[in-house]
Design a protein around this nucleic acid. Structure first.
Length: 364
DNA sequence: TAAACGTGGGA
DNA sequence: TTCCCAAGTTT
């Protein structure tokens, strides 16, 4: 005879918790909506999942709304102009996501008749869709029993089972545990419940264990009275500093010189002001040697911007010139039209340092 | 396997 | 202030 015990994790208490305490999110079909027959839109689910990669819910919300308003269907995004998509993504970071987003939309439109594949495997073959996103879209949009594992789930699972192996080595074991826990019914809600739990209860610091659906007996980390010990992670590496110069040339007509970065690598495909190379150390004086042309360049400050794997200290130079100077690459853009450009945050900071009124907010 | 790849907000 | 990190993917 089968005996049900409470000391092993079960999806049921979590789903019950989710029914009462789920977050209402713009891209989400909540349980009450599902009960009224509302179905998840794969395009919405996919778009939100890509935007949410390594990005906070709060940051994503306005971008998600603008993308849907401008490109209501995946075929609209497939037909969109590349630079328009990059400009719409500007500020959200990890710009390879935007490049792959566009490629993925094109693949869905042209190779799949405008319909997203409804299996994990089919989704995973698309640009920008990895293990997590494939499982998330399969579960949330297509009700597939896929094991969804993101940073939240890793934290919850590592605590439920008190997994002492450090990340990322522990991922295969964690994935195994998630797969065993994922129910055949409501797999999408289960995945979202795990993520909501990780975001609101099973937080990295000071988890609210008294409110957790696994509080009674299931959580091994809580039994040890040390939930914050999990997950165990490898030590971080030191962040190097790089230096460079950026040049903001302004004409009497109020236009500045911009150019487009190459499609690959850091800020790939985004717009920038001319800059020097970003080198690991200052060789001699900070200078205008890398300026796009000779002019009366004036130093007007330094921008310090922290990327994922290095810190950039950018010396900002400004020159007022009478008229446009012809250059090999780039174009002159009215300062009044900078909001429409694909300018990453670091470039908005650089321009704002030279032209304080260039943007509505000084922080870009 | 490990490094590259952005940003802004909270503690 | 400084550190941490948030629904990861690609190479």
């Amino acid at each position: 005879m089968t005996i049900t015990t409470l000391d092993k994790p079960s999806a049921k208490p979590l789903l019950d918790w989710y029914d009462r305490h789920h977050r209402d999110l713009p891209w989400r079909v909540s349980p009450d909506m599902a009960a009224r027959g509302v179905k998840a839109d794969p395009y919405h689910v996919w778009l939100s999942e890509v935007m949410l990669q390594q990005t906070t819910v709060q940051a994503v919300k306005p971008y998600f709304a603008r993308f849907l308003e401008r490109w209501p269907h995946v075929t609209d995004l497939a037909d969109a102009d590349n630079d328009a998509v990059m400009a719409a993504w500007a500020g959200l970071g990890y710009y390879a996501r935007a490049r792959n987003l566009k490629k993925c939309a094109e693949a869905v439109a042209r190779e799949h008749g405008g319909v997203f594949p409804n299996t994990e495997e089919g989704l995973k073959s698309l640009p920008g869709i990895g293990d997590y996103t494939a499982a998330a879209v399969a579960a949330i949009a297509f009700n597939r029993q896929a094991a969804v594992m993101d940073g939240n789930v890793e934290r919850v699972i590592s605590r439920l089972y008190a997994i002492a192996t450090p990340l990322p080595a522990a991922k295969p074991l964690m994935k195994e545990k998630v797969a065993l826990l994922t129910p055949a019914a409501r797999p999408g809600d289960f995945a979202q419940a795990m993520m909501d739990l990780g975001a609101t209860i099973c937080t990295p610091k000071r988890p609210a264990c008294s409110l957790c659906p696994f509080r009674d007996d299931a959580c091994q980390a809580l039994k040890l009275s040390e939930p914050e010990l999990f997950p165990v992670k490898a030590a971080k590496k030191e962040k190097p500093v790089r230096y460079g110069a950026a040049f903001i040339a302004v004409t009497g007509d109020g236009e500045i010189l911009l150019r487009r970065r190459i499609d690959s690598g850091l800020l790939g495909g985004m717009t920038e002001v001319p800059t020097s190379a970003w080198t690991a150390r200052i060789d001699g004086e900070v200078s205008t040697a890398a300026a796009p042309f000779d002019a009366a360049w004036q130093a007007c400050g330094t921008v310090i911007h922290v990327f994922t794997h290095f810190e950039l200290r950018l010396s900002i130079w400004r020159a007022a010139i009478a008229a446009k100077i012809s250059t090999n690459d780039g174009w002159w853009e009215p300062v009044t039209n900078l909001e429409a450009q694909a300018l990453p945050t670091v470039m908005k900071k650089a321009i704002a340092t030279a032209i304080p009124l260039a943007f509505k907010t000084s922080k870009g």
